[in-house]
């Protein structure tokens, strides 16, 4: 199994932390992983993207230039990252913020209104990246709810003592997964 992932969006959408969570979940599942972030010079706002690899074998390049899966969280990222997806790969689009339509026909398009789900269904905009991760898990099978649940308190130490926040994140994850048809 090899899964190369690119996640892209605005700074503050949880793009980076989603990548870290996938990598941490991968370790829990006994996989080899790498995570590489790229951001602009801005401390707030701006654009952010990251490369994540989850693999059965040793990870070669940490820079995912031909991703199996791309998650596009904002409008500008679609044009930049859509062409990278491997033929037969998955393109997950946050339709809450991305109005343009993808042009690729050789990849699986997964439309998920991540912001709408986080804001309305979950009632907490901060759960945006968990919605995204749920959709990613369902669309690719690369990670499981169990491993993400185990990953959360490892990445965010304070969460270990906040079961209600963990429960909220689980709810968001499941809502994201359910949105994938």
């Amino acid at each position: 199994m090899y899964q190369g992932i690119r996640i892209a969006g605005f700074g503050g959408q949880g793009v980076i932390s989603a990548g870290v969570l996938i990598a941490q979940a991968g370790i829990i599942d006994g996989k080899e992983v790498s995570f590489f972030p790229a951001y602009g010079a801005e401390m707030r706002g701006g654009t952010a993207n990251c490369s994540v690899v989850v693999s059965d074998e040793e990870v070669t390049t940490p820079i995912v230039s031909r991703p199996d899966t791309v998650i596009v969280m904002n409008e500008p990222s679609l044009a930049k990252f859509e062409p990278m997806v491997k033929p037969g790969g998955v393109l997950i689009i946050n339709t809450s913020l991305v109005n343009s339509k993808p042009t690729r026909t050789d990849v699986r398009i997964v439309n998920v209104p991540c912001n709408d789900i986080a804001d309305n269904e979950i009632g907490n905009p901060k759960t945006l990246n968990m919605v995204m991760l749920g959709a990613f898990a369902k669309a690719t099978g690369a990670i499981t709810l169990e491993s993400v649940k185990a990953a959360l308190p490892k990445v965010y130490k304070k969460l270990a003592k906040k079961p209600e926040v963990l429960a909220l994140n689980e709810k968001a994850f499941l809502a994201g997964a359910n949105a994938v048809k």
Binding site: V20, I27, V33, F35, F36, V59, P62
Partner: peptide
């Protein structure tokens, strides 16, 4: 700098 910014096990 890539290696400094990367996360790995």
């Amino acid at each position: 700098g890539t290696i400094g910014q990367m996360m790995e096990p």
